[in-house]
Design a protein around this nucleic acid. Sequence first.
DNA 1: GTTGTAAATGCAAGTGCTTGCATTTATATT
DNA 2: AATATAAATGCAAGCACTTGCATTTACAAC
Lengths: 140, 140
Amino acid sequence: MNQSGHIADLLGKQGYRLTPQRLMVVSAIENSDDHISAEEIYSQVVARYPNVNISTVYRTLELLKRLSLVTETDLEGGRVRYHPADKGHHHHLVCQECGAIIDLDESLLEPLQDALLREHNFIADLRHLAIHGRCVRCGR
Amino acid sequence: MNQSGHIADLLGKQGYRLTPQRLMVVSAIENSDDHISAEEIYSQVVARYPNVNISTVYRTLELLKRLSLVTETDLEGGRVRYHPADKGHHHHLVCQECGAIIDLDESLLEPLQDALLREHNFIADLRHLAIHGRCVRCGR
DNA sequence: GTTGTAAATGCAAGTGCTTGCATTTATATT
DNA sequence: AATATAAATGCAAGCACTTGCATTTACAAC
């Protein structure tokens, strides 16, 4: 069902041009089975279409973020990773000491999201958050 | 009391060298009355000590973060700002649309912090968080 | 199928920050 | 005060990402 890329369909329907570069960036994200970095997307695309520019990759990612078709997460610090928005929102606990990544269910952040809306009329964008800290083993 | 810089005292007591560059970075942060960027610190220091290098500023900030003497916040996206840790932890709601910044009390994040500790044994570092989203006026 | 045009791309330079390595220097020891 | 040395700095290059601008191109209208 996700076969020939429903992100591409959505882009087309909203009037964005379906350039080969764009389509290849989109399919790299859709076919990656976990979080993929811009550099990884770029090298996949370059392999089949040698004259793409990395700035096109970044601009496409920017567009997909704006349209809420992908989410980004800063797991490493200094290199962001991307994920199709419809493959589920989840969050990550990242240990600053050992680098361990613990997956976190979306529901844990709902109370916070509600409180921000209630008390500050603020619609928080908490899809795919990375919370940094210390895991069991590393926390003193 | 904050006069001759208690951050400097703490650095000295922990065995770190009190170089002029370091002292000037520290005092720039202590004397700034809100969040200050690395670039701003650098230009203050350069004015009085022309041959400092920006990498020294960044390395000092790195050290101060590690020792929990300053906290950093990404208010803009692409430029981080620094703040003495003892001037209070607070958080910010940043509107992605209009750029408005709403200050947020620390207490709002305590339930989340507690839940992460209880359910995942994870000590979250939530001092000075920036939560992005849409403010009242911009949220549809 | 041609043509026109705004949208998207490529390129090159720029930004904020980091890093490896050789040199300098704050501090402890004499 | 002079010396030794590990820590800190300066420099230059690198990294991830962004941006301005000239060129190309997907798509709509003929």
